[in-house]
Amino acid sequence: MRGSGIGQGGGPLVRLRRRCGWEHNELRRRIDRVQRLIGLGLLLLLIGLAPPLALWAGTWSYQAGSGAERAERAHRHQVVATVVSTGGIGSSGDRYIHETVQAQWPGADGSIRTGTLPSWKKAEVGAHRTIWIDAKGEPTVRPRPHSRTITDAAYAATAAVLGVATPVLLAYVLVRRRCDRHRDALWEADWARMDAAGQR
């Protein structure tokens, strides 16, 4: 019949609650109520620990990333490199060979540095390209972007939540298995009593 609820499985939350043994049912035994209380306690523990730990981990990661941003921006600078010769070959392993160019650029102290840079399309003698250099005047990568700091903070917060949720979930699985074994034993005892009563 429509609206009777018979044969209806309910929504995903209802099915999850039933699977976890948290729904109210007059036919449930004491072991079922114990499991439900333990599950509720573990859920409250997770809710109480996960948010503050995620906030702490995300904040710590964000502050560390922001410090790295400031340090790299303070010691890395953009300069213009000028190609002085082309056709150089630099190898990286036995199979991968990268074409390079010889270039000059001003160091942090103003002196002219000469070195090898990866080639780029239409790189000819006299061509210019902006590069990043460190405090020693050596070519380096661009400073850490702020987007990476935000991403790392999000990863840290997620890892904190998973770090708390994993042992809590494992504890509930162990409790569930222990309760299932106890329930099976109770069912066996009930069937044995029914068989004995039937024989009498």
Rank of each mutant, 00 (worst) to 15 (best):
G67C: 02
T140F: 01
H75I: 10
Q102L: 15
P167V: 03
G87R: 09
P167A: 09
E138S: 13
H75G: 12
A68H: 11
P139H: 03
L49V: 07
H98G: 15
W105H: 03
D94P: 08
Q78D: 07
Y96C: 07
L162G: 10
A157S: 02
T82V: 08
G126D: 00
D180Q: 15
I150L: 09
L174E: 01
V141G: 05
V161K: 01
G48K: 02
P106T: 12
I89L: 13
E72K: 08
P118Q: 05
R144A: 10
G163S: 07
T130I: 12
Q63T: 06
L162Q: 15
Y62T: 05
R70T: 06
R142C: 06
I150Q: 03
A160L: 04
R183M: 00
V161D: 00
D109N: 13
A103S: 04
G107P: 04
S66R: 11
L55D: 08
K122Y: 09
R178D: 12
V84R: 06
L53I: 03
A81Y: 00
D152L: 01
H182T: 06
I112S: 10
C179Y: 11
R144M: 07
T158N: 09
T149C: 13
A68S: 13
I150S: 03
G65K: 01
R144N: 10
Y96K: 08
A159T: 08
G110C: 06
G87F: 08
P51T: 02
S61Q: 03
P51Q: 00
W60R: 14
A57R: 01
Q63L: 04
H128T: 15
R148A: 13
L169R: 10
A159K: 03
R178Y: 13
V164T: 06
G87K: 14
I150F: 05
V175F: 09
R177I: 02
R144K: 12
E138D: 14
V79A: 12
Y172V: 01
R144L: 14
A185R: 02
V173C: 10
H77I: 14
L186H: 02
A160W: 01
H128D: 13
D94I: 09
A165Y: 05
T116R: 14
S111D: 15
H98F: 07
S111A: 15
E138V: 11
H146Q: 08
E99W: 11
Y155K: 08
L174M: 10
D152M: 04
G110A: 04
G90Q: 11
L162E: 07
R113A: 15
I89M: 13
L169T: 15
G110P: 07
A159F: 07
L186P: 02
V79Y: 02
W105Q: 03
T130F: 13
I112P: 05
D152K: 01
A135P: 06
C179E: 12
T116D: 05
S91Y: 09
